[in-house]
Amino acid sequence: MSDIRPGGPVFAPEEVETPPKEVSKSSKPASLWTDAWRDLRRRPIFIASCCIIAVLVVMAIWPSLFSSIDPFNARTCELATARQLPSAGHPFGRDNLGCDLYARTIYGAANSLVIGISTSVFAAIIGGLLGLIAGFFGGATDTVASRITEIFFAIPSILGALLIGSTFRGSGLGIWLVVISLTLLGWPMTFRIMRAAVITAKSQDFVIAARALGAGSARIMFRHLLPNALAPVIVVATINLGGFIAAEAALSYLGVGVQPPEISWGLMIADAQRRFLEAPLPLIFPAVFLSVTVLAFIMLGDAVRDALDPKLR
């Protein structure tokens, strides 16, 4: 019994220990990619760009879903109807050779997207790996890689690709010559981004802890540094993709890109510019599709950049 006399000791009631709450096993700590995906789903720009890109990809893979005319068949071209205005069977009209402009625009998406996506992926792989190695090892490795990168940076992209394309035009590589040319001149930017991200990340505590536990260089680079330095590289690759598509159009316009009988938007623009004042539609339609495609990938890259950068949220 507790003493309630004045000055007597007061005994506090016994504390009842509450059992700890069980943590749900399904709950996982939020990561950068989870937060970024949650943020992207609320961005109208991301949704709009993804819808446009999805339509373009379907158009490139299954062009017959959008047009029943085969533009590679010479019988579908009628020279007597050259530069004909849009009609019921030909919504975009006909080009300077009497070919259906709508079908050529639809089928031209394939080469433009293949060149843009392939160049962006290859440039990201080459620049990313070199930047990872240079940033991790530093010293002479970093110095040599940085000097080589500066040499490639000094070469104007279009001029260098024009020189490579004109030199190896008869090699039979087709559109892959354009991919190789743009890749050789497009990887230095990715190298710098990856190198800077690795230099920043390798001084973090998780890298020091991995070294203390005996992890080798390869494990630290690919298991610890690469996932934490990959976000800016993805952003740069996405934004550069639109630029590579525009560069392919410029090379085709200059005569060293995609060549007939292949079809691309840049080649269509080059063919149509000779008679633009007489018939502007053969140039306007592929130019609009090209502009929308480049804009969609740039919008996608901007949205991904804003989502992956906590300072911009």
Rank of each mutant, 00 (worst) to 15 (best):
S2H: 11
D3W: 08
A12P: 15
E15R: 14
T18M: 13
P19V: 13
P19K: 15
P20K: 13
K21Y: 02
K25H: 11
S27T: 13
P29M: 10
S31Q: 02
D35N: 15
R43C: 06
P44R: 10
P44F: 01
F46T: 02
C51K: 05
C51S: 12
I53G: 02
V55E: 07
A60P: 06
A60L: 08
S67P: 05
S68W: 10
I69T: 06
P71M: 02
N73I: 04
C77A: 15
E78M: 11
L79H: 12
A82Q: 10
Q84W: 09
P86K: 10
S87D: 14
F92L: 14
F92V: 04
G98H: 09
Y102C: 03
A103T: 06
A109I: 04
S112L: 07
L113W: 04
L113M: 11
V114D: 00
S120M: 08
A123T: 01
A124M: 15
G127V: 14
G127T: 14
G128A: 11
L129N: 02
I133K: 10
A134C: 13
G138A: 09
G139Q: 02
T143E: 14
V144Q: 09
V144S: 08
S146E: 01
S146T: 14
E150I: 08
F152S: 00
F152A: 09
A154C: 09
S157I: 12
L159D: 04
L159T: 01
L159P: 00
A161E: 06
S166Y: 07
G170W: 11
G172R: 14
S181R: 00
L184E: 05
L184Q: 01
L184S: 03
P188R: 01
P188M: 00
M189P: 01
M189F: 13
T190C: 15
V198M: 09
A201H: 02
K202T: 02
S203W: 07
Q204T: 04
D205L: 08
V207R: 01
R211F: 05
A212N: 13
A212V: 13
A215K: 10
G216P: 00
S217P: 11
R219H: 10
R219A: 13
R219T: 03
R219G: 06
M221S: 05
R223K: 10
L225I: 08
L226V: 02
P227T: 07
P227L: 10
P227G: 07
N228T: 07
L230M: 15
A237V: 03
I239P: 03
F244D: 10
A246H: 02
A246D: 00
A247R: 00
A249K: 05
A250W: 09
Y253W: 12
Y253A: 00
G257C: 11
S264I: 01
S264Q: 10
W265R: 04
W265C: 08
W265Y: 12
L267A: 12
A270W: 06
L277V: 14
E278P: 05
P280R: 05
L281V: 14
P282M: 04
P282G: 11
P286L: 12
V288H: 01
F289E: 01
S291Y: 03
G301V: 06
R305A: 04
D306G: 03
L308W: 06
D309P: 08
